[in-house]
Amino acid sequence: MATGGRRGAAAAPLLVAVAALLLGAAGHLYPGEVCPGMDIRNNLTRLHELENCSVIEGHLQILLMFKTRPEDFRDLSFPKLIMITDYLLLFRVYGLESLKDLFPNLTVIRGSRLFFNYALVIFEMVHLKELGLYNLMNITRGSVRIEKNNELCYLATIDWSRILDSVEDNYIVLNKDDNEECGDICPGTAKGKTNCPATVINGQFVERCWTHSHCQKVCPTICKSHGCTAEGLCCHSECLGNCSQPDDPTKCVACRNFYLDGRCVETCPPPYYHFQDWRCVNFSFCQDLHHKCKNSRRQGCHQYVIHNNKCIPECPSGYTMNSSNLLCTPCLGPCPKVCHLLEGEKTIDSVTSAQELRGCTVINGSLIINIRGGNNLAAELEANLGLIEEISGYLKIRRSYALVSLSFFRKLRLIRGETLEIGNYSFYALDNQNLRQLWDWSKHNLTITQGKLFFHYNPKLCLSEIHKMEEVSGTKGRQERNDIALKTNGDQASCENELLKFSYIRTSFDKI
């Protein structure tokens, strides 16, 4: 039985969820670079991206490699990797027998973001014989899940209580170790020597080791999670996991709180800001991140802002960003909400898709409305799209047979046209069989910064309504002859009103 693990408890099935942008060198404390989270699957090609990484700022997932063999891993080693800020997950990587050479110096898994409450997941690794993470000293947050690894031993010899604050939620089941077939031998045991430290858990006094050649490092209890030197002297209180010299914040392997210019500090002093819960960055760093993602459509890219001495992905609820200094300031009234469309555009074809934009005031991208039916549609669209004030790209209304009016965009005031449909149009209306009105132009103002209007096959939309939009939106004169079809717009509506004058002759039985 794995020490510190839980057996036999019912657990939810383990679901495996399925960018080499360097964020800056980590400095003297770390020998390499800070790398983003990685999802490495199918083959070993991307694994080489770990070569210079000291910190993975995010998670590391290595999974679904069915053609790899043990010899493929023999020359692979990433000794610079010290810390993973989120979680480490391995799933069905064939041929991998140990992690001792792959990650010989991995010391800390912070667990800032977890995989279903777990910071370390080893699942269905069919050839893994031992973990071998002999320098792993601290899992700051989260638990361990090690399950269905039929060859995995050296679990009962690990004292997880020396690595985690609590072992109650560890789930370590259905491994070879369960069948008591392992016969784990710690260093020196074969020669009758006791080389590794022994600890007591559940009444068992057991030597602690990761492999037959690597003991588990056990520091004096007084050192807590700070770690200790090879001689057993406690590291500085700002260290986490390990250090090369005692009581020196510049000799830590990793930091308990924050890293700044080669030393570990309790908090980031001005003019620095907390970033990702582990390091200090200056304003320029946060500003660069903001600008890199301002026009990016890459998933996970955030326009970072500053709030409460932190550089964070977005302002919290009730705050909006001051564009001059990136500071989050309290909103006066309802907060603006910028919604970034991942692929640059979004099609609204149902109430469900409209709900995804609920509360958005600025759309960074283009909207395509293609709704053919739905219950209580006008009210639903207004509830979900009615706060949109600005669209950076274009607005396209296409084959939306259920629409009679666009009044559900009740606050839309600006279409920038930074991206144009077919390279020309910022407003595009095609084949809307029941569209009769755009907006009530006596109450609604709309500016279209650039781009043209396109109207074709809107049989109940009168040309007068379209011409009014040209005047109000500032697009009059931009359109070419064929942009607004004269014969297919309003051709099934009563669009022309003329005053009919009647004269009559009164007659009676005795007068003409």
Rank of each mutant, 00 (worst) to 15 (best):
residue 29 L to M: 10
residue 30 Y to D: 08
residue 35 C to R: 00
residue 38 M to H: 12
residue 38 M to R: 04
residue 38 M to D: 03
residue 40 I to V: 15
residue 41 R to A: 14
residue 42 N to W: 08
residue 42 N to F: 10
residue 42 N to I: 05
residue 42 N to S: 10
residue 43 N to W: 07
residue 45 T to A: 05
residue 47 L to W: 02
residue 48 H to W: 06
residue 48 H to M: 08
residue 49 E to Q: 06
residue 53 C to S: 01
residue 53 C to H: 00
residue 53 C to T: 00
residue 54 S to L: 04
residue 55 V to R: 00
residue 55 V to P: 00
residue 56 I to T: 01
residue 58 G to R: 00
residue 59 H to R: 08
residue 60 L to A: 01
residue 61 Q to L: 08
residue 61 Q to R: 05
residue 66 F to W: 14
residue 66 F to Q: 05
residue 67 K to S: 05
residue 67 K to G: 03
residue 68 T to W: 13
residue 68 T to A: 12
residue 69 R to M: 06
residue 71 E to Q: 04
residue 71 E to A: 13
residue 72 D to L: 03
residue 74 R to F: 06
residue 76 L to K: 15
residue 76 L to E: 01
residue 78 F to M: 08
residue 82 I to P: 00
residue 83 M to R: 00
residue 83 M to G: 02
residue 84 I to Y: 00
residue 85 T to L: 07
residue 88 L to C: 01
residue 88 L to H: 00
residue 89 L to V: 00
residue 90 L to M: 15
residue 92 R to A: 14
residue 94 Y to Q: 15
residue 95 G to F: 05
residue 96 L to T: 01
residue 97 E to I: 11
residue 99 L to Y: 01
residue 100 K to A: 07
residue 100 K to I: 06
residue 101 D to S: 15
residue 103 F to Y: 01
residue 103 F to M: 04
residue 108 V to D: 01
residue 109 I to T: 00
residue 110 R to E: 04
residue 110 R to D: 00
residue 111 G to A: 02
residue 111 G to R: 00
residue 113 R to F: 06
residue 113 R to T: 09
residue 114 L to S: 05
residue 115 F to Y: 10
residue 116 F to I: 12
residue 117 N to R: 06
residue 120 L to I: 10
residue 122 I to W: 00
residue 123 F to N: 07
residue 124 E to Y: 13
residue 127 H to N: 04
residue 129 K to L: 04
residue 134 Y to F: 13
residue 135 N to V: 01
residue 135 N to Y: 02
residue 135 N to D: 06
residue 135 N to I: 00
residue 137 M to K: 10
residue 137 M to F: 05
residue 139 I to N: 01
residue 139 I to G: 00
residue 140 T to R: 09
residue 141 R to P: 01
residue 143 S to E: 07
residue 145 R to I: 05
residue 148 K to Q: 09
residue 151 E to T: 02
residue 151 E to G: 13
residue 151 E to F: 04
residue 151 E to K: 14
residue 155 L to S: 11
residue 155 L to Q: 12
residue 155 L to D: 06
residue 155 L to I: 11
residue 156 A to V: 10
residue 158 I to L: 12
residue 158 I to M: 11
residue 160 W to F: 13
residue 161 S to G: 09
residue 161 S to E: 13
residue 162 R to M: 08
residue 163 I to N: 01
residue 163 I to P: 00
residue 165 D to V: 11
residue 166 S to T: 15
residue 168 E to S: 15
residue 171 Y to I: 14
residue 171 Y to R: 01
residue 172 I to H: 03
residue 172 I to P: 13
residue 173 V to M: 05
residue 180 E to Y: 08
residue 180 E to R: 12
residue 180 E to L: 11
residue 182 C to A: 11
residue 183 G to S: 12
residue 183 G to I: 06
residue 184 D to K: 14
residue 185 I to Y: 07
residue 185 I to R: 05
residue 189 T to M: 07
residue 191 K to P: 08
residue 193 K to A: 04
residue 194 T to H: 14
residue 195 N to V: 12
residue 195 N to S: 09
residue 198 A to F: 10
residue 201 I to L: 13
residue 202 N to G: 13
residue 202 N to S: 12
residue 204 Q to A: 10
residue 205 F to S: 14
residue 206 V to Q: 15
residue 207 E to Y: 07
residue 215 C to M: 15
residue 215 C to W: 13
residue 216 Q to H: 10
residue 217 K to C: 04
residue 218 V to W: 08
residue 222 I to N: 08
residue 230 A to W: 10
residue 231 E to W: 04
residue 234 C to Q: 02
residue 236 H to N: 07
residue 237 S to M: 05
residue 238 E to D: 14
residue 238 E to I: 01
residue 238 E to G: 06
residue 238 E to R: 04
residue 239 C to Q: 01
residue 240 L to G: 07
residue 240 L to M: 07
residue 242 N to F: 08
residue 244 S to Y: 05
residue 245 Q to W: 09
residue 248 D to G: 02
residue 249 P to R: 07
residue 249 P to G: 04
residue 252 C to S: 00
residue 252 C to V: 00
residue 255 C to V: 00
residue 255 C to A: 01
residue 256 R to I: 09
residue 258 F to A: 08
residue 258 F to L: 07
residue 260 L to C: 01
residue 262 G to F: 03
residue 264 C to L: 00
residue 264 C to I: 00
residue 265 V to H: 12
residue 268 C to G: 00
residue 269 P to N: 01
residue 270 P to K: 05
residue 274 H to R: 04
residue 275 F to S: 03
residue 275 F to V: 03
residue 278 W to R: 01
residue 279 R to V: 07
residue 279 R to G: 14
residue 283 F to L: 09
residue 283 F to S: 05
residue 285 F to M: 08
residue 286 C to L: 03
residue 286 C to Q: 03
residue 290 H to V: 10
residue 294 K to P: 05
residue 296 S to Y: 14
residue 297 R to V: 08
residue 297 R to S: 07
residue 298 R to Q: 02
residue 302 H to E: 08
residue 304 Y to D: 02
residue 308 N to T: 05
residue 309 N to S: 08
residue 309 N to R: 11
residue 310 K to F: 04
residue 311 C to A: 05
residue 314 E to Y: 04
residue 314 E to A: 10
residue 315 C to P: 04
residue 316 P to V: 04
residue 316 P to L: 03
residue 316 P to G: 02
residue 318 G to T: 07
residue 321 M to Y: 14
residue 323 S to V: 14
residue 323 S to L: 11
residue 324 S to Y: 03
residue 325 N to Y: 04
residue 326 L to Q: 12
residue 326 L to V: 05
residue 328 C to A: 03
residue 333 G to K: 02
residue 334 P to N: 09
residue 335 C to M: 03
residue 336 P to E: 08
